[in-house]
Simulated scan of single mutants.
Amino acid sequence: MLAGALLLALLTGCGSAPAPPAAAPEQPPAQARVVTADLPEATTFGDLSEAPADPAPQQPTDGTVLRVHDELALYDAPDGEPFARLPATQLENPTWVPVVETRGQWSRVLLPSRPTGATGWVRPEPGQAEPARSPYEVEVDVDAMRMVVRESGREIGSWTVGVGGEGTPTPRGRTYMMAAIEETVTTFSPVILPLGTHSQTLTSYGGGPGTVALHGWPDSSVFGTASSDGCVRVPDDALDLLTTLPLGTLVLLR
């Protein structure tokens, strides 16, 4: 678990072709030829201006997520140009990212970096990553200040929540649960759930990158108000449920 002091710096307050002729050696896939160490990392600290934008930021997915075991090169399109690398861990948690589109052996995934809505295409080699599926979806209606959690399309919980204030609004779009961090310094929430999205008005907070999160709050009067620095504040029983959901679970901020 990440130390609480570092956490405070992160949050805004509160993702076969035929063989060539025998005379020529078989060429490896494009991704295998990429020297990933030369590429910037796709983490919550990164700013990937070359990343393609999410083409459908308000659409749900089929729940497919990708567990990254070994860092992957990220491409701007299938068979396109590499622009970053996706590491196997995020904030000392394993990397799980939602798949939002597939084309043959290529998968388009949501990324944890700025700009909000950044995506990248990956084509994992055997052992680099494995697909799984999360049946869960978290939806936050920012204007109504209401959060709903669904399992296989069935509602399993809903709550009134707190959202970002007028000057520090909660960003909209689809993102995901990037990590789960046990808080050891402050007492406002026992667990923080950073998302793969950032504040649109705060470029940094406490020296960190302005990562938005789901987290608890000790004063229930904040629920139903727009008063946070962009994070979504949730009641205790909502947090209890959220902490049981797998990383990579889709979060729709509407």
Results as ranks from 00 to 15, higher is better:
E71T: 11
L110V: 07
D54R: 06
V142N: 05
G216Y: 01
L241A: 07
T168P: 02
T170G: 07
G120E: 00
F188K: 09
L6F: 11
T170C: 03
P131G: 04
V222E: 01
F45S: 12
D62V: 10
G15I: 02
A84W: 00
G165S: 14
V34T: 04
P55K: 08
L6A: 10
Y205A: 12
L39W: 01
E166G: 12
S113N: 09
R103G: 01
V251F: 04
D38P: 00
T186M: 14
P57N: 12
V149G: 06
R33T: 11
P18Q: 14
D62C: 07
T95K: 08
V148Y: 06
P218K: 10
S189L: 07
T43Y: 02
A77F: 02
Y136W: 14
M147A: 14
L91S: 03
V35N: 15
A118Y: 00
V251H: 01
W106F: 05
P28I: 07
G216W: 03
S227Q: 12
R254E: 12
L247W: 01
L48Y: 02
A17S: 15
L91H: 06
P124T: 07
N93E: 14
G224Q: 08
R123Q: 13
P126K: 08
L66V: 02
P126I: 07
S221Q: 08
P131R: 15
G230E: 09
A17F: 11
A179W: 02
E166W: 10
S158W: 05
P98M: 11
R33W: 04
A213V: 02
P112W: 02
A144P: 01
D62Q: 14
V163M: 09
W96V: 12
F188C: 08
Q27E: 15
V68A: 03
T64Q: 14
V148A: 11
S152C: 01
S49G: 12
L202C: 09
G117H: 03
A17I: 08
E92S: 14
V34P: 00
L111P: 02
P235G: 11
S152T: 13
I156K: 10
L74K: 00
D229F: 12
F45P: 04
G4L: 05
A118E: 00
W121H: 02
A23T: 15
T197E: 06
A3E: 15
G15Q: 05
D141E: 11
T12M: 06
L39N: 00
G4T: 08
D54E: 12
L214H: 05
L74S: 04
